[in-house]
């Protein structure tokens, strides 16, 4: 009786483990696949023979990238964008989330502002007015357009606001009794306690800025100013053959350059893949506490 139960339990646990491991491998697939293609020779990749293992192993693609100035220029722009974007988002969101985490009794316009934020998150005027606005604000062709152009990250504000709202009130109250003003409470009481949620929004912000490619295509007048994803996309671009002209014909004949594109994509994925495991413990905590009471 007992053994039978432990048999089924063991069977269950074994199966369970197997499924989990398969799921895990499934998640590694894209990175592995991209890496395989990038290390294969052009002909094998073009013939679709590469899947889980490189064919005709070569470092050629990576050597080509090393000689590509624009790749590094764009890489640097992406880094700048991520750093500036994260720094600004950090302070603006923190400053904004704190007052909004108060009840409307303590801070009257709180609810109105919250609804305004939600409204701004849902509605937009379309690409053309946005572009014109960016232009009149002098955001064309410079890094600030990329950093600020996406607008206030409302979702992240709500996340931090919720986290602060769910923090124990006692610490704040005792600080107040000690005579601390709002600024000191924010920076010496709330800030240290909200490290997880701040780390979480930093992860979101970094991922967003690193992967976003569309804005630069609109805002930048030259490929010299493109961040990495925009640069990669324009060389790995899918072409619309309905607008076929001689230019497109030429570019299409270059599309078989899969291996080089794969190498570029792989390098572009790398920074995020390297840093996220280290931020993991923070964003796990932050997401939990920011959205739902623990």
């Amino acid at each position: 009786m007992v053994t039978e139960r432990s048999m089924t339990a063991r069977l269950f646990n074994g199966l369970n483990l197997l499924v989990l491991i398969v799921l895990m491998l499934l998640c590694l697939l894209p990175v592995w696949y991209t890496l395989s293609v990038s290390l294969s020779d052009k002909a094998s990749a073009a013939a679709g023979q590469v899947f889980l293992w490189p064919r005709g192993f070569t470092w050629g693609s990576y050597e080509t990238i090393m000689k590509d100035d624009q790749f590094f220029r764009s890489f640097w722009i992406s880094i700048q964008r991520v750093v500036c974007g994260a720094a600004i988002a950090f302070f603006v969101i923190l400053l904004m989330a704190y007052p909004l985490s108060k009840t409307s009794k303590d801070f009257k316009p709180r609810n109105i502002i919250m609804w305004l934020l939600v409204f701004a998150m849902l509605f937009n005027g379309g690409l053309v007015p946005w572009y014109l606005t960016m232009q009149s604000l002098g955001m064309i062709n410079n890094i600030w357009g990329l950093v600020l152009g996406g607008g206030l990250p409302v979702f992240n504000v709500i996340l931090v606001m919720n986290y602060l709202r769910n923090m124990p009130k006692e610490m704040e109250e005792s600080a107040m009794i000690d005579g601390a003003g709002p600024w000191r409470i924010l920076f010496s009481v709330c800030l240290p306690l909200s490290v997880p949620v701040l780390a979480t929004i930093m992860v979101f912000t970094i991922v967003y800025h690193w992967n976003e490619f569309f804005q630069a295509l609109v805002l930048m007048n030259k490929a010299d100013h493109y961040p990495l994803q925009s640069y990669i996309r324009q060389v790995a671009v899918v072409i619309d053959p309905t607008k076929m002209d001689e230019e497109t014909v030429k570019r299409m004949s270059e599309l078989s350059n899969q291996t080089l594109n794969a190498a570029k994509i792989f390098i572009s994925m790398l920074p995020l893949l390297v840093i996220y495991p280290f931020l993991q413990k923070y964003f796990v905590k932050g997401i939990t506490l920011g959205s739902v009471k623990g």
Binding site: L217, V218, N221, A223, Q234, V237, V238, K243, T248, R251
Partner: peptide
């Protein structure tokens, strides 16, 4: 401005017209 020929260029032209 410059844009990659193909879709990116067309998009940029359309944007220039629209704005």
């Amino acid at each position: 401005w410059e844009a990659a020929s193909g879709n990116d260029y067309q998009q940029k032209v359309s944007l220039a017209i629209s704005s």
